[in-house]
Design a protein around this nucleic acid. Structure first.
Lengths: 205, 205
DNA sequence: TTGACAAATGACACTGTGTCATATAAAATA
DNA sequence: TATTTTATATGACACAGTGTCATTTGTCAA
């Protein structure tokens, strides 16, 4: 978390720092982000930066926290909204994560952020970056409607979640990489459909 | 690729460098790997390192090349072996990638390597690291038996491939992270099964 | 033995990090 | 208002690592 000192700063100054930071985070992947560039761009002294933030992860965490806080709130509601339908739930998650980039700058920022995703556990969802971390899907497990799922144990549900999570996560990353927004969504929905009904044709015919 | 100079070195010296490198690559993720540590451990001069390799990626690429060359050869055969069964094909891929770590050191090495995977496209399969890069699954597409797959277009097949790829890749990473070897494989097979037959119970009952 | 090529070396110039003693500004108190 | 106390800002500094290059050392053929 940023220090009290930072939070007490004038809105103007805070904004200047955050803008410089976003610019730098948009430029290169996290490991190449240079605090030097940020302080120069924000026109603050090097020492000040360290008075405000522990390190660049701390700063990034602060920037992303709001986004994830919003996400948690949305998803909390959403699981009720979709009446426990795990597929609709993940589709909402996808929509939320991919809809938040209204400007080109935002897009570039999130693209670079997602470039840093290795596994979700490692990065975005790690306490290091996001203190207000997204709820693990596990937290919703008791709200999931399993009546029409081919599961026998609690573990099976978790496996399905993991799969959907992996696929959704990858789809989100892809959204920011190669494809058009529409094409990306279409592909994602096809994948969800395959997971629902299976890839083999025997049952379908 | 390492320079001729490196390749001409005595086996002993080469081995010493490669050992030091593996040790360092096992210690921290790629971005934190320090050439300094490698040259000190291998007892060569800093300048020598740069006479042998362009940079640390070059070195890592050299170390991994054999592994991937083997993989390509194996997979080329395997697609025939499994008679175009895409699921069996991916399971073979999983087996190959997770079986190659006989010692604890190997395990640690690959674990750290896989920590660097963001998306396969980005890292392991990028030309920067692996010059002899694994064939894209796409290269096998015409050898896949689609007769029992619920697909209508070529694109559908590609989507299925992508899914299997994503899931397999994640499963490989997980193999090196949390779980026991056996548990990891079991989970992976369950996922494949879900993709084959679908998650919904309606068809099954 | 000498010359020519191959290989090894480490000092050097850079880039960037995180810290800390000091300077400055702002607020509180007398 | 003057003085003390607290908060904030600053950039020089020590450190760690990178990649380069002129120079040294080693090897082998003529």
């Amino acid at each position: 978390m940023p220090s009290e000192t930072f939070l007490r700063l004038s809105e103007d100054k805070k904004e200047k720092v955050l803008l410089a930071a976003k610019k730098e985070f948009s430029r290169v992947p996290l490991e190449k982000v240079s605090i030097k560039n940020i302080v120069e761009d924000a026109e603050i002294a090097r020492g000040s930066f360290y008075q405000y933030f522990e390190d660049k992860e701390d700063l990034l965490g602060y920037i992303l926290t709001n986004h994830f806080k919003e996400m948690n709130e949305k998803m909390e509601k959403q699981i009720e909204e979709v009446k426990g339908d795990i597929f609709e739930f993940f589709i909402s998650l996808y929509d939320f994560m991919t809809s938040n980039c209204l400007t080109n700058e935002d897009l570039n920022f999130y693209k670079k952020i997602f470039e840093n995703i290795r596994t979700c556990e490692d990065f975005l969802f790690s306490k290091k970056i996001i203190k207000e971390r997204p709820k693990k899907i596990k937290d919703y497990i008791d709200k999931i409607d399993t009546s029409n799922l081919r599961v026998t144990t609690q573990e099976d549900i978790e496996i399905i979640e993991k799969m959907l999570f992996t696929i959704t996560n990858k789809a989100i990353v892809m959204r920011f990489k190669y494809e058009s927004k529409e094409k990306a969504k279409e592909d994602y929905l096809k994948q969800i459909n395959y997971i629902k009904y299976g890839v083999l044709s025997s049952k379908k015919e």
